[in-house]
Computed example of a mutant assay.
Amino acid sequence: MTPVSPADLAARIATHRCPGETLVVGITGSVAVGKTTLARQIAEALPAGLKVEIVSTDGFLKPNAVLEAAGLSMRKGFPESYDRAAMAAALAGLKHGAVKVPAYSHTSYDVDPAAARTITGADVVLVEGLGLAPDAAGQRPPLDLLIYIDADEDDIIAWFLARFMGLWDAAASDPSSFYARFRHMSEGEARQFALSVWNGINRPNWLEHIALARLVADIVVVKALDHSLSA
C-alpha cells in the first residue's frame, strides 16, 4: 500500500474533469469511517478556481415519520431507508442544471425541509454518505467516480464510540440534541449502548450492504487508526 493524502485524491479527481461539465464524485464507507471529513479535505485541496459543492446522502433518507410507519426506524442507513429514486434523479440532474437537494439535521436526526438548497453550475460535486452501494442488479448510483474508504473494524468501532460519546457528552448542555435521550445513562451504560448499536445495526449494514460499494469503486483508500490513508 502507498500512502496517499486528500491532496493526492483531489489531484486525481481533477484529471477527470471536463470543462463546462459537472463532475459528480461519491465518497462512501462504513458509518464513522470519516466520509464527511475526507469530502471536506478533498474540497479544500481542489484547485481554488473550481466551484465545489458537498452533498450528504443523509438528506435522501426518508423522513422519520415515514420510516416509523413502515417499521423501518431501526433500519435507518440501510438501503430501504433511502428515497433511492429521488437520490438517483438528483445525482443525474447535477450534470444538467439546477438541482434542489434535501438536507438532514443531526440535531433532530430527521430530514429538515427548511435546510434544502439548490446547487447549480458546480464544477465538482462531492456526494458523501451511505446509500451509494450497488443495487440488487449490481448498478451503482449515477456517479462519475466513486471513492470507498476501508478500515479495520476495530478502528471503526473506536471512531464510532468516540463520536457517540462526544455527542452524548455535549448533550448534557443541549436538551434539543438527539443524544439528550441517552443522558439518563451512566457513561459506561452509554458506551455499552453505543456498542450494541454498532453490533446490531451498523455492523450488519456495513458488511451486507455498504461494503458492496468497494467492489464497484474507482478508488479504494484504506484508513488507519491515526487517520492516515493509503491506496
Rank of each mutant, 00 (worst) to 15 (best):
A11R: 09
A114P: 05
E128A: 07
T118S: 05
R183W: 07
P141D: 10
S196E: 13
E21N: 04
G71Q: 00
I157W: 02
G77V: 13
A69H: 03
E53T: 03
A231N: 13
D154Q: 07
Q41P: 02
A137P: 12
S73H: 11
A89L: 15
S5Y: 04
R40Y: 00
A65F: 03
E21D: 09
R214E: 11
A194F: 00
A11F: 04
A162P: 01
D83R: 10
R140H: 14
A122Q: 07
G97T: 04
A43Q: 08
R181F: 05
A172P: 13
G26H: 04
E153Y: 00
S176M: 10
A90V: 11
Y109N: 04
H106V: 02
A43G: 05
L50S: 07
E44A: 14
G131Q: 08
R214C: 06
V52Q: 04
L215K: 15
I210S: 09
V111I: 06
L143H: 02
V127M: 13
G166I: 09
L132F: 10
F164S: 11
G121W: 08
D226A: 11
G166A: 13
A171F: 12
R84C: 12
T2G: 12
D144R: 05
S5T: 09
E44I: 05
P134H: 15
P204G: 11
Y109V: 04
L145G: 12
H227K: 06
A98W: 14
T2F: 09
G121M: 08
A65D: 10
S196M: 10
W206E: 11
D144Q: 00
S81D: 08
I201R: 09
R84E: 13
A43K: 07
A170P: 05
E153D: 00
V101C: 09
D110E: 03
D123K: 14
A14Y: 07
A48E: 15
S230P: 04
K51V: 15
A172G: 15
L167P: 01
A194S: 07
V197M: 13
L126E: 12
T36S: 06
S105H: 02
I27S: 01
L207C: 02
A45V: 09
L9H: 04
F78P: 09
H106R: 08
A133H: 15
I119W: 10
A39D: 00
G121P: 06
A88M: 13
G131K: 10
A122N: 13
I54W: 01
A103N: 05
